[in-house]
Amino acid sequence: MSQYIIRRLLQMIPTLIGISIIVFAISQLVPGDYITATQNPNLTAERIAQLRALYGLDLPPVQQYFVWAKNMLVGDLGQSLQHQMPVTKVINTYVWNSFIIAFFSFVFSWIIAAFVGVFSAQFQYSFFDKVVTLLVFLLMSLPSFFIGLLAIKYFALDMKLLPTGGMTTAGLNATGWAYIKDVGLHMFMPVVVMTTLSVGGLTRYFRTGMLEVIRQDYIRTARAKGLKERTVIFKHAFRNALLPAITLLGFELPGLFGGAMILERVFNWPGIGQIYLASLNLRDYPLMLGFTMFLAVLTLLGNLISDVLYGVADPRIRLK
């Protein structure tokens, strides 16, 4: 097993090199750079040349790539031009804000989807199942900004139950429990909206998986043993239905840290998604490239984790 993991980790190296070349090349193909993107009319041509030299933008692209790649090897993702601090620090500052909402909505959506999916599969074509199917399609087709704004209108503006946005109440210098409560209140809507958005597809996934498993011969065997229906469903069927979901679990890893660009904008949440979007607009290449590489590493790791988990959960798979 550990041998397998080590081999997979080594295999990630050429993949990452490939990815770094591609994203760098794409960044070079995009017209404009940080200097032009800031659109500062006061900059003289001389000053522009100076800045370009300062940021290393005057070097030929190949050379720029190697400088970037070499620094990356020692964990230095460069300076963010826009934030004027190291990219790693920018990421570290904002990524956790994104992580907490992503994490809670991940936990809630998986738990809800598993239960609802299992029950609606168990009672296929029942009234419950039909309502679930309808809701699933409804949720899957809702755009996030729309329900985000709708939620703000009803719960924050009309009913004044929750704050309209941000992560903390301005001017409230709370600490300890008061701080957690304040953040919790601010988190509530983004988490609910994010959960709502992801729960639909997941529910469908679990429902389909369960329907597939329930038809299997070994479920008939379990019933023929006289086991309780609860045991049949939650032990014999669910364990098997979970197997394909494990693959999905790995793909969630980059999502946990990747930030939600649109929702963070809507709720004015200081997450990495917003920052990433801004870095694209401002051609803050070090930040943009650095964060993209960060996501690439997470994606590959997520993949590895799902393969390992699969190997642990399914006795038919032996990792070698």
Binding site: Q216, D217, Y218, R220, T221, A222, R223, A224, K225, G226, L227, H236, R239, N240, L243, A313, D314, P315, R316
Partner: peptide, 19 residues
């Protein structure tokens, strides 16, 4: 079921739970 009346099936390959 399973106690007084037990049953075996045609498909031994798929009648046992793989996990």
């Amino acid at each position: 079921r399973g106690k007084e009346i037990a049953m075996i099936f045609q498909e031994p390959m798929s009648s046992l739970n793989p996990v």
